[in-house]
């Protein structure tokens, strides 16, 4: 029975699951991206046509979609960090200890609700007869309502709403781990509040920011829902292009090729963040 010790085989089921339902599908998709549709049947021909059509489509749809995706994602990541950092800082250092847990749960409460619901609820706020327009009309700032939905602005806003909460969580978790004595020592050595923040707290909270920013980047660049609901028809992001290929045209080879390109971008992002993302045991 010694051989059936958990320490020996405990990792096997999880690895098997990952291999069968994650690695194998990725390989299948890679193979698919080199296939072609001939008479509606998908055949492996080791063609590069799918990648070629990404680059050379005359209307530039796919390259444009990739570029849009990168722009929106980078913008989202930066704004989310800027919004979340002060929030996490206030939660960690200004809210009294006894209230912190409650305040944190409250702050990220909408994080736990449905992603689809959260996205479309912004339509209620942004649309021409939505809350913001009503308010601006009432306040006399506007004469006629302006539609704020169906735009890149709306997409980024929807993203920031969600990812600011995610980043608040990761940054807060990082900030509360920074020992009080670091700041005390900095003050003791002559640093004022801003200097202690700039030289000590900020650099020590980089891992929390990096983890959150990386997750934001990966989740945002691969997200289909928010741009589809809030972005409107004016511009298309890469995930929308992928879904379009699967949904309307059942063009799995092209969809696979586009997904591979998406993965490549994410891998590049991972390389950028990798140094800061360390897994440590307590």
């Amino acid at each position: 029975m010694k051989g059936w010790n958990l320490k020996n085989w405990g990792h096997a089921p999880a690895l098997a699951w990952t291999a069968v339902f994650f690695v194998a599908p990725l390989i299948a998709m890679l193979v698919m991206s080199f296939s072609a549709r001939i008479d509606g049947k998908i055949t492996l021909t080791w063609t590069l046509d799918n990648y070629r059509s990404f680059l050379t489509r005359a209307d530039g749809t796919f390259v444009g979609a990739l570029w849009n995706s990168i722009e929106v994602t980078v913008l989202t990541t930066i704004i989310s960090v800027l919004v979340a950092y002060p929030l996490a800082y206030i939660l960690a250092y200004r809210v009294p200890k006894n209230w912190q847990r409650f305040a944190l749960v409250l702050t990220v409460l909408p994080f736990w609700t449905s992603y689809v619901v959260r996205s479309y609820s912004w339509l209620l706020v942004l649309s021409e007869n939505g809350i913001i327009n009503q308010f601006l009309l009432w306040a006399g700032i506007l004469d006629t309502p302006i539609g704020m939905g169906n735009s890149r602005f709306a997409t980024v806003l929807g993203f920031v709403h969600f990812f600011a909460m995610l980043l608040t969580l990761t940054i807060y978790a990082n900030l509360v781990q920074i020992k009080d004595s670091y700041r005390k020592a900095a003050n003791d050595l002559g640093a004022n509040g801003w200097q202690a923040f700039w030289y000590i707290t900020l650099p020590l909270s980089v891992p929390g920011v990096a983890v959150g920013a990386f997750l934001t980047f990966v989740l945002a660049i691969g997200d289909y829902i928010t741009p589809q609901i809030l972005g409107g028809a004016k511009e298309m992001l890469l995930p929308q292009a992928v879904m379009l290929q699967i949904g309307r045209q059942a063009d799995f080879p092209l969809a696979s090729a586009l997904s591979m390109i998406l993965m490549l971008v994410i891998t590049a992002a991972f390389m950028v963040f990798a140094k800061r993302l360390k897994m440590e045991r307590v």
Binding site: K179, S181, Y182, K184, A185, L189, P203, L204
Partner: peptide, 12 residues
């Protein structure tokens, strides 16, 4: 100037 119990050396 203080020498702290946990030293509080800046890890970065």
């Amino acid at each position: 100037a203080t020498v702290f119990q946990d030293y509080a050396l800046f890890p970065h």
